[in-house]
Design a binder for these strands. Structure first.
Length: 991
RNA sequence: GCCCAGAUGGCGGAAUUGGUAGACGCAGCAGACUCAAAAUCUGCCGUUCGCAAGGAUGUGCAGGUUCGAUUCCUGUUCUGGGCACCA
């Protein structure tokens, strides 16, 4: 009886399905455990071997926890709204709902073959109206809430309105300090208004003000606008400043956008990190993203640039230049100021001489993405002709604009201190701005020194003070002189929450006279209507703007972004059929936080921060009773593709002296595909002469005539991706290659090495376009799901990225066959027996239990797989076929290879499923040792091993070691300084 | 440019807290079984010197701390992920 994996896997998958083996109840006496995978987007390309890595990891953990006696929730669903389906619809006219549904079917059938323990009854799809009804509902909660800064918590907006009518906004300052109502009749001074003022505002003004507080709010923001395509582009649709499709210019354009006021949660998001089990790197990335910094805002009076008709006098601009700085101590080292080029008032302060240059520079910056602006090494900028006055010494400071200052951070203006900041230093050098040294010898004139420990000089009242002490002194002074204030800043910006696209959740919002009116909750879901075309609407609006029945109702034409549905899906799994609530309180109280969340670091700051914010908001509003969604995060690495290359050599020559008959009859064209093997390519790639010779001899070998008539022969080399699936290791399967791409290379010629065509290789991202994707189903077909699962885990640590190589899968398959042979012999049939196990056999088993349990617990699956191999190897060596040993081993292996273990489990006369067996308990008594073979080093170099009893004392050890011949040889008669003895580890003799 | 991570044999990786570098597997080499192949089993397998015994050397690179460093520190190179509208 041999290991027939395909039959076994089919059988048990059907059985588990029929018996609803993975159905999970919300009511159980067992402790709960929630294992979640990051929401997949069902892409049209289907699964490749990289996708299931995390799913297998979480599946193993879920199954392990179940064996450990937990009620385990392990659901799966689809983040089904998204750009690719819409793009596909634009190109093929197929409704995204249809293509998405097809993709999901394909995804599901691929997943099913791998044998996951998902409870499919809990499946959710974000594009399903039953689901997005609740996404819209949560949006309304956010819209109808504000963040009370006093208690650091979201509250219903009614409460804020009530406060306004009684006390104005004395205790609730407007988050955006520069806000003014559009109706100039109602101006707000100092961001403050009284109850009387509030009550006097008209309805529209009141709504405008409330919008400044709502957690989901409307504002204006810049988007990538492509005039030629008439549409807004995603960042990754823009390459080098032009659209990826068509290469049209892309500029920044301001459009009305929805936002989530995540900045209000900045501090809570930071604090929450202390309560969750994420990697330090992950916490650091989120912390840096939030980017909290403590500093000060300082106001400088602006002296406007000269105007032509009034060339001698400077005038003071009506409002000051406010900069944000974390280093107010360097105030006397400010040699210039830099503004973000998009600030409105630049054109008000620019001098006539500089006007044109500034305008040109602003146009240039408009075509640049934030990323490009920050990554740019070349220093660019433009003087405005205006000056800022240093409030402490009245020094005139030139004002520049430059792309390295971003409008979105701080005030969009900086005070530049070249002696202390590298970018400022380079800028000063570039524009020949004199540098003031305020840190004495700490500044060498060659590079900036960002120290905080220098003693200040050239700094008036700060002279002689250490920089870090000066910070507070300056801030106090700023406050005293009313020219600045203490300020905490966050790098994080409010989250843009709308897209000018079709395939997303519609906003439950109507517009009336410029006021956003939320739909009534009972009118949800607001269904996504069908459209004729998926092309954009007028003025950069989304496709919904093309539907008259939509616009006539004055419904919002933007749709929600991809992360709307994925910000709360983990809650819906808890109670996915609920039609009256997003999830019942009973369900969310029972399942509570996700205990283990498995996914890639690519979601480090996007998805994870958004879902953390949504959770906090829902918590604040009393809908759930926990304010962090994910207790523990496990980051899986990416599986990279291992691409294979072939090398083509083509002829370039002057054929003018050939007549056309010759051209047709000769075989230059039909034989243009000549491929040379890797090592030959390596030889000729930098040697044109050799390449030409190679080509010439190949042509004469092929009997192609007329070669000698050609002039200026030149061999051209090109490197082409070739499908990894037709390469065995590095050797190309030439027959398959000839059939590839509808026989494009059917007539190809090859120059081989040792009779083989060897390919080049490189590790790249796994993607269809690189022909390096491997379909998991092909491997499941060939080796079975159990082998595939274990091999994915055996590749390396879950959290590490690694290239895929199918070759090694044989080893894991052999392991399972070897396990099988412990139960069944090809000749003899059943070999397992019920004899009593020996101490040696128990030791093998318990060593495995200890190692595998520990490794599974810490997601070190690759070493666990090794431990299984070691165990089975040792059992085979000792010819152990005893049920007493094999049965617990099967349970250990169940999370990793559920099919084979279920089959063998039943072979051992069990009638219930192995899925609910009891995990074996480790007994340390079987592993007790009395002595150890100690490695003995002399001066840190290993020289010998000596077996010594474990209870030996330092003196006994020293005696034994010094009596050893090899030790004596190395010690010779040098004096012994010290003997280091670490019990159960090693011995080192220092001479 | 900024933030984060990684780098160990021909390859994937192991070494969990500073203590025998290379577990386990792949590939390769030699052998057993076989008419043969497959399957299976046994042995070898970082580099280098040596017939061997045994030595030297070796964890991206350059330094440092330590009796002892793949592990800690400083600097540096390269690769991967993210940088706010891919998901």
């Amino acid at each position: 009886m041999e290991y027939n994996f395909s039959e076994i896997e089919k059988k048990w998958q059907k059985n588990w399905n029929d018996t609803k083996a993975y159905k999970v109840s919300n009511i159980s006496s067992k402790p709960k455990y929630y294992v979640l995978d990051m929401f997949p987007y069902p892409s049209g390309a289907g699964l490749h071997v990289g996708h299931p890595l995390g799913y297998i990891a979480s599946d193993i953990y879920a199954r392990y926890k179940r064996l450990k006696g937990f009620n385990v929730l392990h659901p799966m669903g689809y983040d089904a709204f998204g750009l690719p389906a819409e793009q596909y619809a634009i190109e093929h006219g197929i409704h995204p709902a249809i293509s998405t549904e097809n993709n999901i079917k394909n995804f599901r059938s691929q997943l099913d073959k791998i044998g996951f323990c998902f409870d499919w009854d809990r499946e959710v799809k974000t594009c399903d109206a039953k689901y997005y009804k609740w996404t819209q509902w949560i949006f309304l909660q956010l819209f109808n809430s504000y963040f009370n800064r006093v208690i650091q918590k979201a509250e219903p907006i009614e409460k804020l309105i009530a406060t306004f009518t009684q006390e104005g906004n004395i205790h609730n300052e407007i988050p955006d300090a520069s806000f003014q109502p559009s109706n100039s009749k109602f101006q707000i001074s100092n961001s403050k208004f009284s109850a009387e003022e509030w009550n006097a505002f008209d309805e529209k003004t009141q709504q405008e003000i409330l919008m400044q507080y709502r957690l989901a709010f409307c504002g204006y923001g810049e988007v990538n606008w492509c005039e030629a395509l008439g549409t807004v582009l995603a960042n990754d649709e823009v390459v080098n400043g032009v659209s990826e499709r068509g290469g049209h210019p892309v500029i920044k354009k301001k459009l009305r956008q929805w936002y989530l006021r995540i900045t209000e949660y900045a501090d809570r998001l930071l604090q929450g990190l202390q309560t969750v089990d994420y990697s330090d790197a992950m916490k650091e990335m989120q912390t840096n993203w939030i980017g909290k910094s403590i500093g000060a805002e300082i106001s400088f009076q602006i002296v406007k640039g000269k105007t032509l008709n009034n060339s001698n006098s400077f005038t003071t601009y009506h409002s000051p230049l406010t900069v944000y700085t974390t280093r107010p101590d360097t105030i006397f080292g400010v040699d210039f100021c830099v503004l973000a080029p998009e600030l409105d008032y630049i054109m008000d302060i620019v001098s006539a001489e500089q006007k044109q240059a500034v305008e040109e520079y602003i146009t240039y910056v408009k075509s640049r993405s934030d990323r490009e602006r920050q990554a740019e090494k070349k220093i660019t900028g433009c003087f405005t002709g205006a000056y800022a006055i240093n409030p402490f010494n009245n020094k005139n400071i030139p004002i520049y604009i430059s792309e390295y200052v971003l409008a979105g951070y701080g005030t969009g203006a900086i005070m530049a201190v070249p002696c202390g900041d590298e970018r400022d230093f380079k800028f000063a050098k570039h524009f020949n701005i004199p540098i003031t040294n305020i840190i004495g010898e700490h500044f060498n004139g060659e590079e900036a020194n960002p120290t905080k420990d220098a003693i200040l000089s050239n700094s008036h009242f700060l002279n002689g003070i250490v920089m870090k002490d000066a910070i507070e002194i300056v801030v106090d002074k700023l406050v005293e002189l009313k020219i600045g204030k203490r300020k905490i800043n966050y790098k994080m910006r409010d989250a843009a929450f709308s897209r000018q696209r079709y395939w997303g959740e519609p906003f439950p919002i109507k517009w009336k006279d410029g006021v956003a009116i939320p739909l009534n909750e009972k009118d949800l879901p607001l269904l996504l209507p069908d459209v004729e075309t998926y092309s954009p609407g007028p003025e950069g609006e989304g496709p919904l703007a093309n539907i008259e029945s939509w616009t006539i109702q004055q419904l919002e034409t933007n749709t929600m972004p991809g992360y709307a549905g994925s910000s709360w899906y983990f809650l819906r799994y808890m109670d996915n059929e609920n039609e009256t609530e997003f999830a019942s309180k009973q369900a969310t109280d029972y399942w509570n936080q996700v205990d283990v969340y498995v996914g890639g670091t690519e979601h480090a700051v996007g998805h994870l921060l958004y879902s953390r914010m949504w959770t906090k908001a829902l918590y604040d509003l009393g809908f759930i009773s926990f304010d962090e969604p994910f207790k523990k995060l496990v980051n899986q690495g990416m599986i990279q593709g291992s691409s294979r290359f072939v090398y083509r050599i083509t002829l370039r020559a002057d054929i003018s002296e050939l007549n056309s008959n010759e051209l047709i009859s000769n075989k230059f064209n039909s034989n243009k595909n000549i491929f040379i093997s890797k090592s030959i390519f390596e030889k000729v790639k930098d040697n044109q002469e050799l390449a030409n010779q190679l080509l010439k001899s190949k042509f004469s070998e092929l009997g192609i005539e007329g070669f000698e008539k050609l002039k200026n022969i030149e061999a051209a080399l090109s490197v082409l991706h070739v499908d990894v699936n037709m390469v065995d290791g590095y050797e190309l399967n030439i027959e398959e290659f000839k059939k590839w791409r509808n026989g494009e290379y059917a007539n190809a010629e090859f120059i081989l090495e040792d009779g083989k065509y060897m390919c080049g290789a490189e590790v790249e991202k796994m993607s269809k376009s690189k022909f390096n994707t491997v379909n998991p189903n092909d491997l499941v077909e060939k080796y079975g799901a159990d082998t595939f699962r274990m091999y994915e885990m055996f590749l390396g640590p879950v959290e590490q990225s690694k290239p895929w190589d199918t070759k090694g899968i044989e080893g894991v398959h052999r392991f399972l066959k070897k396990l099988w042979r412990l139960f069944f012999d090809e000749m003899k049939g059943k070999v397992w027996n019920e004899e009593k196990a020996t101490d040696t056999e128990l030791k093998i088993l318990h060593k495995a239990i200890k190692k595998i349990e520990e490794d599974t617990e810490r997601f070190s699956y690759n070493t666990a797989v090794s431990a299984f191999m070691v165990c089975v190897n040792e059992l085979a060596d000792t010819k152990c076929n005893k049920k007493e040993i094999l049965e617990p081993l099967l349970i250990l292996l169940t999370p990793y290879a559920p099919h084979i273990t279920e089959e063998l489990w039943h072979t051992l006369d069990n009638v219930t499923s192995v899925l609910d067996a009891n995990y074996p308990t480790f007994n340390p008594q079987y592993l007790v040792e009395s002595s150890k073979e100690y490695p003995v080093s002399i001066n840190g170099k290993l020289r010998t091993n000596i077996v010594i009893a474990l209870d030996a004392t330092q003196q006994q050890v020293e005696q034994i070691v010094l009596a050893n011949d090899i030790v004596k040889k190395w010690v010779e008669d040098k004096p012994i300084k010290k003997i280091i003895f670490v019990k159960n580890k090693m011995i080192n003799v220092v001479v």
